[in-house]
């Protein structure tokens, strides 16, 4: 393809992406060095916002919460997604039905799913989970304070994120399983490898690439967690269950809080973190393109 043709074809998309992404990004970068309110030009304050962000214990808590949530959710979804994919891979006629059901939580707007989730736990609205758990355990489950106690609240937030992210992990791994060589598996079986050994030494190594990709997407997406917390953690700030995105929202957008400079500084710091995490993938793309 000629250079001129390339530029003609990519121009509309590039204009949209750069116009609507780079221009706002530049604005965020400028704001991060200013004290600024909506609708008025800011005053330069140098690194004050960055110093403010880095010394705010709230940011430390938000990072800890977000990273902890990412690790727990990713580990669970990788393991359980693998088990589910293996089970679904053996299904025959039921497969489309099971896949269809599992896809629902993935395609539903996350905030709507989280609202529906909150009704399961809120004792003001029936609290079906407490009810069923107490029926099963004869009342030993008690009434955990799902929305006001830090750990129970973390549990429902993590459960909700797993709920809508698990189908994605399962589908990716299911796709990866299609590429595992049947011959190698058969050879391992003839050599007397147990089922567990076949998974550990044949299947998992051969879908390493897919698992790495799932890890990458989960890292990018769970770090940006926001939607779920709005209905599930109304008291996130007090409980220490504020995610990085929610922190930015609370200081820079929510009514009465318009510290746009500070919010922008945290955005910039998050971008730096994401770039570091993305570095291996970026190198991979460049290497693949050069080859």
């Amino acid at each position: 393809m000629k250079r001129r043709e390339f530029w003609l074809l990519v121009t509309p998309s590039v204009i949209v992406m750069f116009g609507f992404m780079l221009v706002p990004l530049y604005r965020t970068l400028r704001w991060s060095f200013q004290k600024v309110d909506y609708g008025s030009p800011g005053a330069e304050v140098g690194l004050t916002n960055y110093i403010g962000a880095l010394t705010d214990p709230r940011l430390g808590r938000a990072v800890l919460f977000t990273v902890g949530l990412t690790v727990v959710v990713t580990a669970f979804c990788l393991v359980f997604g693998y088990i589910l994919a293996t089970l679904i891979n053996q299904l025959g006629r039921m497969r489309p039905i099971v896949l269809g059901i599992l896809l629902i939580s993935y395609v539903l707007p996350h905030v709507v799913g989280a609202v529906a989730f909150s009704w399961l736990f809120d004792s003001n609205f029936g609290g079906i989970v407490n009810f069923l758990a107490n029926q099963l355990t004869g009342g030993a489950f008690g009434e955990p304070l799902w929305f006001t106690d830090p750990w129970p609240n973390r549990v429902i937030v993590a459960a909700n994120v797993v709920w809508f992210m698990l189908p994605f992990a399962m589908l990716m791994i299911l796709a990866g399983l299609q590429g595992v060589s049947a011959e190698t598996l058969e050879a391992a079986e003839i050599d007397g490898a147990s089922s567990l050994q076949r998974h550990l030494h044949v299947i998992i190594p051969s879908i390493r690439g897919v698992l790495g990709f799932v890890l990458l997407i989960f890292t990018m997406d769970v770090i940006r967690i926001f939607d779920s917390l709005i209905p599930l953690s109304p008291q996130a700030v007090g409980l220490g269950n504020e995610s990085i995105m929610l922190y930015i929202y609370n200081v820079a957008f929510r009514e009465g809080a318009v510290n746009l400079g500070l919010g922008s500084a945290i955005s910039v710091l998050t971008i730096v973190l994401i770039l570091i995490l993305l570095y291996p993938s970026i190198r991979g793309i460049v290497k693949e393109a050069r080859a």
Partner: peptide, 15 residues
């Protein structure tokens, strides 16, 4: 790829 991973607020608040 980088744009895909951006924190939404970095572009949405200026928007």
């Amino acid at each position: 790829l980088v744009f895909r991973a951006l924190p939404r607020f970095a572009v949405v608040l200026p928007m």
